Simulated scan of single mutants.
Amino acid sequence: MPGMWWTVGAVVVVGLLSAYLNWTAGRVRRLQDRAESAARALDAHLLRRAAAAAVLAEQRFGVELYAAARMALDAGPQERETAENDLTRQLRVVALDPADPVCEAVIAASRRLALARQVHTDLVRDARSARSRPLVRVLRMGRGREWPRYFDIDDPILVVPADVTTG
């Protein structure tokens, strides 16, 4: 009889360990998927902002803003952060009027971009944290997938002057 309890105990321990490892692998996979999804959403918001800035540059402002917007739209993965930072700097130089629909489109796109960037940063941090745990690394639970990468850009929120008529 005592040998049977050891067998039952061993089966329970193996079962619990298997359940934990399965849960951990699923969590790593889900966090990785969420980080990749956030990266795609961030990319879409970057493209929307650059397109809105290009329209604004064509209608209101000059060549420098248009060139920065085109560079952001056309940049490859290696140049993307630099191009987006240049676009942010160019947008901060121009005086944006929130009453103007074209300016409002750029302002709104910048706000949505800031939120998408924050979500992306949080999810990448969580995915990297999960993948860097010793058990996950030893068992190579993240194999076959690239490490999630941060997208390091300046804060894209634009400062818009307050409306003097409401003051």
Rank of each mutant, 00 (worst) to 15 (best):
A108N: 10
A83M: 00
L96Q: 00
A52C: 04
D86C: 10
N22P: 09
R34N: 10
R49H: 03
V94L: 09
A39G: 08
T121V: 15
L31N: 09
T82N: 07
C103Y: 00
L16T: 10
L96C: 04
Q118A: 05
D86V: 14
A162H: 15
V94K: 11
V102Y: 06
A39T: 07
R143S: 13
M4R: 13
A109D: 01
V63I: 03
T88D: 11
A109P: 02
M1I: 09
G9R: 04
L123S: 00
A75N: 05
V13T: 14
R131V: 05
V13K: 12
R111C: 07
A114V: 00
Y150A: 08
R125Y: 14
F61E: 08
A162G: 14
A108C: 08
A127N: 10
L87S: 00
N22S: 13
M4V: 12
D154Y: 09
E58P: 13
W5Q: 06
A38V: 05
R30T: 07
A67V: 09
V13N: 07
V106I: 01
H120Y: 14
T88Q: 07
P101Q: 15
A83F: 00
P77K: 15
R89H: 15
G76N: 07
T24S: 10
A41M: 04
P156T: 01
D154N: 02
R140M: 03
G144P: 06
D155R: 09
I157K: 07
D86Y: 13
L139M: 02
R140L: 08
R128E: 06
G167D: 10
V102L: 07
V63G: 12
A69F: 08
G142Q: 02
R48G: 04
A130N: 03
Q32I: 11
T7G: 07
R133L: 12
R111T: 10
D100V: 12
A69M: 03
C103P: 02
E79N: 11
A99F: 11
V94A: 05
A67R: 06
A109L: 03
R92M: 05
R27I: 11
A41F: 07
A50K: 07
V119E: 13
M4P: 11
R70Q: 09
R34Y: 12
L113R: 03
V159Y: 14
L73S: 11
W147I: 06
R117P: 04
R70Y: 00
A39H: 05
A41Q: 10
S37F: 15
P156E: 05
P134T: 12
C103G: 02
R145I: 03
V94S: 13
L47F: 06
V160Y: 11
A50R: 00
V119I: 11
A25Y: 11
S132A: 15
V159S: 14
A72L: 00
